[in-house]
């Protein structure tokens, strides 16, 4: 059945294929347009460089009026990523706008990797190390990068 959410997701997918932003990719799972798999490549010149981080995006019929649920499947060490992979990012919560599409969501998460916000931590250890012991922070991130190749 075609609903506004499904129609819009088909458009989002088409756009992502025709005009892919650098360093991210995503596609619906085989039998369900409402659940997507995505990959974000760790941005250059950050400790996340060379990582291939996998995510799932779950949409409801209320998309794009409500944001999807986005979660890292790959293990992450980042001030704004919870232990279960959930992401603390304003545009995925209270600053969501229906004008964002999948492409915008993925590029926003990509920039979050480059610029963590240690003042609203989802992982307090990562936030503390990011602020006080950058060398140790980078070491822990590098371990995630290496693990991301195995998944």
């Amino acid at each position: 059945m075609s609903t506004p959410a499904r129609r819009r997701l088909m458009r989002d997918f088409k756009r992502l294929q025709e005009d892919p932003p650098a360093g991210v990719s995503g596609a619906p799972t085989d039998n369900n347009i409402m659940i997507w798999n995505a990959v974000i490549f760790g941005p250059h010149d950050t400790p996340f460089e060379d990582g291939t981080f996998k995510l799932t995006i779950e949409f409801t019929e209320e998309y794009p009026n409500k944001p999807p649920t986005v979660r890292f499947v790959s293990k992450m060490f980042h001030p704004n990523v919870y232990a279960d992979g959930g992401i603390c990012l304003d545009i995925l919560q209270n600053r969501w706008s229906p004008t964002y599409d999948v492409s915008a969501i993925l590029t926003s998460i990509q920039s979050l990797l480059s610029d963590p916000n240690p003042n609203s931590p989802a992982n307090s250890m990562a936030a503390q190390l990011y602020k006080e012991n950058r060398r140790e922070y980078e070491k822990r991130v590098k371990a995630c990068v290496e693990q991301s190749w195995m998944d």
């Binding site: 458009r11 756009r15 794009p64 004008t99 964002y100 599409d101």
Partner: peptide, 10 residues
């Protein structure tokens, strides 16, 4: 400056 792609949908 509104994003063309999503704006057109609405």
């Amino acid at each position: 400056g509104f994003p063309k792609f999503t704006l057109e949908d609405f």
